[in-house]
Structures are given as structure tokens and as C-alpha cells.
């Protein structure tokens, strides 16, 4: 465990807290992509199947359960709970996620570590996580202006990815047996998707002002 990895995980947890606060306290899921949240739920449920047979640390196992529970709770609230379910707009949040899930499933079957069923599912979850933010980014793009909490949510997720990238670099140079090409490739793609958002986030938050983020 290094500081980048730890801060990355904390920033990931922070993103869940921000989103849960926004939809429970604000009673609205406006601006939040249920599609993206459903993709994250699929990602965590498939990747953490190994909760039942792999144990590396209490920290890991605990966070795996937290991630599955938080993403499920978010999907449940937006899809089924009043009044939040009436604030979700399916016409705006209509990214065709089958075009993300399908290719990721094929990639998982073809490109994985050792051709076992779990390695295929695991690789699928890595590929899907890389693109899971796309419906959210498209939704923000359509709206043009991003509410503060929503922008903090996306920023926390972006920070998590950036910190994981630094964690990989750190581990590569400090550990003898540390090589994971699939994760590095997908993670770099994923981090890249946030670059444009971060530019606009920085533009609207600099100078201590808390203006909403405007996207062109």
C-alpha cells in the first residue's frame, strides 16, 4: 500500500459519498446518469466475485463490499425510490450502453491473463470500468452546465483514476514482480476520458469561486 493507492481509494469513496448525499439530501437525480451507475454496478459485481475465494487483506475485502453496496444503493434509489425516480430523465440519459457492454464482453473473452472463466469476467470488468463514465460525460455535455455537486462527483472519480495511475508507476519502480498490462492500458484510457472535463472544472473553480462548470 502506497500513498497514491490509498488516496485513490479514498477519493473513490468520496465520490460515492458525494453522489449519495446529492441524491438523498437533494432528493433529485437530475444530471446523474443512471446508465453510468448501472455500468459501475456490473463492473463491481463481476470483478469482486472473487470475494468468495480470494483474500488479500481486510481492507480490500471491506472496500469491495462497500463499492458493491454503494453502487447498488445508488441504482436502487434512482430507479425505484420516490421522489428520485421521477427526476431521472430517460430521454436525456439515453446512451446505448449495449454498445459498451458488448465489445467489452468480447474483449474480455479474447484478451485476458490466463483463459479461465474468472479471468475473462475480470478482464471484462476492467474494460467496462474504463468506459463506464461515458454516459455521464455525454449527459453533462447535453446539459451544458453542470451543477456543483455533480461536478465534484466527476472530479473525485477523475482524481481516483489519476492517483491509481501514479500508484502503478510507483509500484513498477519499487516492486520486483509488478506487471499488469491489461489494467495499465484500460486505466490509461479511462484517465484520458477525464482530461477534457478537468480542463473545464479547473476553469470554473479557479480563484476560489464556486461557479457551475460550463461545457461547450
Amino acid at each position: 500500500m502506497n500513498i497514491f493507492r490509498f488516496l485513490g481509494d479514498m477519493s473513490h469513496i468520496l465520490s460515492f459519498v458525494i453522489l449519495l448525499l446529492k441524491i438523498t439530501q437533494g432528493k433529485s437525480a437530475a444530471g446523474i446518469s443512471l446508465r453510468t451507475q448501472e455500468l459501475y454496478m456490473i463492473v463491481f459485481c463481476s470483478r469482486y466475485l472473487d470475494l468468495f475465494w480470494n483474500f488479500s487483506s481486510l481492507y480490500n475485502s471491506f472496500l469491495k463490499v462497500v463499492f458493491i453496496a454503494c453502487s447498488s444503493a445508488i441504482v436502487y434509489i434512482i430507479r425505484f425510490k420516490s421522489p428520485q425516480k421521477d427526476t431521472w430523465n430517460p430521454e436525456l440519459d439515453n446512451f446505448p450502453i449495449q454498445y459498451l457492454i458488448g465489445p467489452c464482453a468480447v474483449a474480455g473473452l479474447l484478451i485476458n491473463q490466463d483463459w479461465t472463466p474468472f479471468e475473462m469476467i475480470w478482464a471484462f470488468s476492467i474494460y467496462l470500468e474504463a468506459v463506464a463514465i461515458l454516459p455521464q460525460l455525454f449527459l453533462l455535455q447535453k446539459q451544458g452546465e453542470v451543477e456543483n455537486l455533480t461536478s465534484h462527483y466527476v472530479a473525485a472519480l477523475g482524481a481516483y483514476r489519476g492517483l491509481y495511475l501514479m500508484n502503478w508507476v510507483y509500484r513498477y519502480f519499487t516492486e520486483d514482480d509488478y506487471l499488469q498490462r491489461i489494467v495499465w492500458f484500460a486505466g490509461t484510457v479511462q484517465t484520458g476520458l477525464y482530461i477534457d472535463f478537468f480542463y473545464h472544472y479547473y476553469q470554473s473553480k479557479r480563484g476560489g469561486l464556486s461557479r457551475p462548470v460550463k461545457l461547450p
Partner: peptide, 10 residues
């Protein structure tokens, strides 16, 4: 030569 890492990340 480096070997593949185990699954100790989230």
C-alpha cells in the same frame, strides 16, 4: 524479468 502481479488492487 518482472512477473504478473496478483490481484491486490480494487
Amino acid at each position: 524479468k518482472k512477473k504478473k502481479a496478483g490481484k491486490d488492487e480494487l
